[in-house]
């Protein structure tokens, strides 16, 4: 797959404040990229530069090979953008809203009628076709806005907090919609505060803090890179004392906890392990060799929240 978004040394300064500091990033075509970070991390600034709405102080970004600073019109044809604070024309009907924007993108009138039906079906708003936009719920407006971004069939969708302010049902519907767009082959670049949502649908993730990219990659790789020590949980039949004593003499084991220290059942021991997969396998073999009656032996996988908390320090610009 080819690279569709290339960001090279992107910097944005507002006076003495550096909102974006030498950002470098490549995103493959067809990827779903989740952009994470606390408020003020520089996510929206990055997106606004990518959509040609903001001029970078230094560096450049290319979308589909076109520079956002030198060829903004070509970039605009390739992208569909949904801002964080998006507006809709409340005085229009749902179909009129899509018809108007499709006309603005020079979609011929005879194509527009069929296209509006398809887009409304995609975002499940066919039943609201003749309703006024102002009568829609926030979730529906969000889906309508997403349909609008697709009116000119862009290659890449840049969505700033597409699920913000939505109730759980609307959020799930939005997630399903993003999945459908992913299956249609669209490249999706979206920011979110909802980590579980990002973990669910993204093929790669970038975490920003204070204008810098502090972590980038797919979730699995990121977790492996970040978890220098691994958390292992073992359950035994009967008394846990022999297991604890064995582990305390192991060089790769850093701390051993049981139900008296953390919230665990009486037959479970949890310990930090600093070795690799081979060392972990050796440890398991030796435990079995000394006849410790293990029922289960597993690694606790940290979720995106753990990764996020580990790489960010809570610095806000």
């Amino acid at each position: 797959m080819s690279t569709i978004v290339e960001i090279n040394g992107l910097t944005k300064k507002y006076g003495s404040l550096t909102a974006l500091d030498d950002l470098n990033l490549n995103i493959e075509e067809g990827a779903v990229f989740g952009f994470l970070g606390p408020n003020g991390a520089g996510k929206t600034t990055t997106m606004r530069i990518l959509t040609t709405l903001l001029k970078p102080t230094a560096g450049d970004a290319r979308i589909g090979g076109y520079s956002v600073t030198k060829n903004p019109n070509d970039v605009r044809r390739l992208i569909g953008y949904m801002p964080d604070f998006f507006g809709v024309y409340d005085d229009m009907k749902v179909w009129e809203y899509l018809d108007f924007f499709a006309a603005c993108y020079n979609v011929p009138a005879n194509v527009r009628q069929g296209m509006i039906g398809d887009l409304l079906a995609l975002v499940d708003l066919n039943h609201k076709r003749d309703a006024f936009v102002e009568s829609l719920s926030r979730g529906m407006k969000q889906r309508l806005c997403l349909a609008r971004t697709l009116a000119h069939d862009p290659q890449i969708l840049i969505l700033d907090e597409p699920a913000s302010g939505l109730d759980p049902r609307a959020r799930i519907e939005m997630r399903e919609l993003l999945r459908a767009l992913k299956q249609m082959g669209k490249t999706i670049f979206f920011s979110s505060h909802i980590l579980s949502e990002v973990a669910d649908i993204c093929t790669s993730i970038g975490i920003m803090e204070a204008g810098r990219m502090v972590a980038f990659g797919d979730l699995q790789t990121m977790r492996q890179q970040l978890q220098m020590h691994r958390l292992i949980q073992a359950r035994v039949l009967g008394d846990i004392t022999p297991l604890k004593e064995f582990l305390l003499h192991e060089p790769n084991v850093q701390s051993v906890m049981d139900g008296t220290e953390v919230e665990l059942t009486a037959d479970v021991v949890r310990f930090d392990f600093t070795g690799d997969d081979e060392a972990l396998s050796n440890l398991l073999s030796r435990l079995i060799a000394v006849q410790i009656p293990l029922i289960s032996f597993s690694e606790e996988m940290g979720d995106l929240e753990d990764v996020f908390m580990q790489v960010t320090k809570g610095i806000v610009n």
């Binding site: 801002p83 604070f85 020079n106």
Partner: peptide, 16 residues
């Protein structure tokens, strides 16, 4: 008005 209601940027991104 477009700026107030948040539609100006969307309109700006059209090829007009």
């Amino acid at each position: 008005t477009e700026m107030e209601q948040g539609t100006w940027e969307i309109l700006r991104l059209t090829p007009q």
